[in-house]
Design a protein around this nucleic acid. Structure first.
Length: 588
RNA sequence: GCAUCUGUAGCUCAGGGGAUAGAGCAGCGGUUUCCGGUACCGCGUGUCGGGGGUUCGAAUCCCUCCAGAUGCGCCA
């Protein structure tokens, strides 16, 4: 169904046209002066010059026509030429009834569903997730859900880092510790064990240990490089060991992402793209894109409009090895071949902007993607501590994601138990949900591209612009609805009627803005727009709630109308937080 | 050095050509015959980094300067 603002635009545009002015001038926006009106139209001022006429006169002409529209209860022209609009109450109620009946709450699914791949998460095999991985996971998950809600086919891919020296280092360290394992015996002919020779916690200790050694011990590093090469050349024992590393690691990653309500459709890995590299390189050479420069194989990607020198894209190092860029390009080939995406969105630290500029240009120039395939880089800013510097533990180290989440869960649990008596088991689960809302809302309510301060005290607060405040509002609505049902009320039999007071009307107007907020969040890949929308909505609801005694209302039709309004408010809020990637408990 | 991004209230952030620049937190003062007061209402605070320009109108667009973050060929 059409958005409210579109309907109003149509009214205003036709009024301008009927009054003899250009139709496009009739653009209606939400009022920025709620004391004066609900919606406004500024077209008369823009028209003044064109028609050499005082704006107020133009506004008067338009108002004369607009007054007849059933959409408005009040239309006035104000100096110097504003047109102030107030919505008709019945028209508004009618719209909300339609919205409630619409399965997508007024948001029209796209007529042209596209396949969108989202590359997010940024996890590496055998390395624990840390706070640096938080933003990509949270933002990516939300972008994915928003795209799906709009009716697109969205594929989330974690794109694991599983290739390169890190793997060689781990294999080398395992070899030093357990040299008798069959993986290191070239003569071994039997079946390799199905059980991994290490647990996830051992694995997480092995990598930093090996990495440390390689920095001090040249021979050790040499060994790791050899192991890397051997793995990449397909040594069966090394491959078998590598598979163990992958399995152990992926199981652990799935658990951790699961705790964040983050789910990937694909668990593709850098190694999956390797088979595409040789042909890709050959083709780039053959077509004349790639040439040798200072020993390396490069592709020029300069463009005339550049304001600075963009270095060429290096395809192969001077020693012939592939690098990050190479793998990313090969991954594009694989994605195009297997999934035919119309768009690929990369949700990565904004410091990698230059890298992706190179990859995208190179992919386009060498024809790896179709002309109309969109490649989008959504760079996010750094998560800082209260001191404004990158978030660290108290000891100054990198904080593991698991620890961060556990700490916040604990804090939430403490708050819940402190505030009222609760069953410890239920309180644990509630704490988990509220903590997740705190973390995700805290992150998503900031613009992705900016650095932001991760302030645990602020995010976990039940007051202000926070996740817990949103959840609290939802829980409160649920509580009233269930009381209504407990007293014999039937939710399905309720019907929204015209607003009885101002706070109810502004809640209703706020509800009509849902579709616009979602569409904008989708078009701008900006989940924070949803946050600010639901924060305003929660405020509107709470204001209305305080002025209106709902359950004790004697007029049954009026009571049912309010219940219907509450139900719609709950649905809009819950749909919205689902798009942000968290959910609300029944009680808290 | 060059480039990109950022600069809005004491703090954390919205707003991105229109009417008096907004929220939250922090501070102060109210609201309870209570459907969850973890709420709601009110009060104060601004050279929108500085300066120039475009426009009937600029926090918003353009130029310039200042400050900070980040990035600048064989790491990922």
């Amino acid at each position: 169904m059409k958005q409210m603002i579109e309907l109003l635009n149509k009214e205003a545009m036709s009024a301008f046209a009927q009054a003899g002015y250009e139709e496009s001038l009739g653009k209606v926006t939400l009022s920025n002066r709620p004391d004066l009106c609900e919606y406004q139209c500024n077209g008369a001022m823009a028209a003044a010059k064109k028609y050499k006429k005082a704006p107020i006169m133009i506004a008067n002409d338009v108002v004369a026509i607009l007054e007849k529209s059933p959409a408005f209860q009040d239309v006035t022209a104000v100096n110097p030429g504003f047109i102030n609009l107030k919505l008709d109450k019945e028209y508004l109620a009618e719209y909300l009834r339609d919205m409630q009946a619409d399965e997508n709450l007024s948001v029209e699914k796209t007529g042209k569903p596209q396949t969108i791949m989202i590359d997010y998460g940024g996890a590496n095999v055998a390395k624990p997730l840390h706070v640096g991985h938080l933003r990509s996971a949270i933002i990516g998950e939300s972008v994915k859900r928003i795209g799906r809600f709009m009716g697109h086919k969205v594929i989330g891919d974690v794109h694991l880092g599983d290739w390169g020296l890190q793997m060689g280092l781990i294999i080398t360290e395992v070899k030093h510790r357990q040299p008798d394992l069959p993986y290191f015996d070239p003569a071994f002919q039997g079946e390799y064990p199905t059980e991994a020779p290490f647990t996830i916690s051992e694995l997480e200790e092995i990598y930093p240990c090996a990495s440390g050694k390689s920095k001090e011990d040249a021979a050790y590093k040499e060994e790791a490089l050899e192991a890397t090469a051997k793995l990449q050349n397909g040594d069966p024992g090394y491959r078998a060991l590598w598979n163990h590393i992958l399995n152990v690691s992926i199981a652990d990653l799935k658990k951790n992402y699961g705790n964040l309500n983050v789910e990937f459709d694909l668990w593709k890995k850098e190694s999956d793209a390797q088979p595409y590299i040789p042909d890709m390189v050959e083709e780039m050479k053959r077509a004349g894109f790639a040439y040798e420069d200072q020993g390396a194989l490069v592709v020029d990607i300069k463009e005339e409009t550049d304001t600075k020198e963009i270095p060429p894209c290096i395809i192969l190092k001077s020693d012939g090895a592939a690098l990050y860029t190479t793998t990313d390009l090969a991954t594009i080939i694989e994605r195009m071949k297997l999934y035919h995406p119309d768009e690929i969105i990369y949700i990565v630290d904004k410091r990698q902007d230059m890298h992706f500029t190179q990859v995208f240009r190179c992919a386009r120039k060498t024809g790896l993607v179709n002309e109309d395939t969109r490649l989008k880089f959504l760079g996010f800013g750094t998560m800082n501590g209260k001191d404004g510097k990158p978030f660290k533990t108290r000891e100054g180290g990198v904080m593991r994601l698991e620890r961060l989440i556990a700490d916040i869960n604990e804090e939430m649990y403490r708050k819940i138990m402190e505030n009222h008596e609760a069953d410890p088991k239920e309180a644990r689960e509630t704490a988990r949900l509220v903590a997740l809302s705190a973390i995700k809302y805290g992150d998503l309510s900031n613009q992705a591209s900016k650095d932001y301060v991760f302030d645990v005290d602020k995010f976990t607060s039940f007051e202000g612009d926070t996740g817990p405040y949103i959840l609290y509002t939802i829980v409160r609505i649920k509580s009233i609805l269930s009381k209504y049902q407990a007293n014999g009320g039937i939710l399905e039999n309720t019907r929204i009627c015209a607003a009885a007071n101002d706070s109810e009307k502004s809640l209703m107007i706020q509800l009509t803005g849902f579709g616009g907020a979602i569409v904008q969040a989708y078009e701008e890949t900006a989940p924070h727009k949803i946050c600010s929308y639901i924060y305003d909505l929660a405020n509107s609801f709470n204001r209305f709630y305080h002025e209106t005694k709902i359950l004790s209302e004697e007029n049954e039709e009026q009571k049912a109308s309010w219940i219907a309004l509450l139900k719609l408010t709950r649905d809009v809020l819950e749909t919205s937080i689902d798009l942000l990637g968290f959910s609300a408990p029944e009680r808290m």
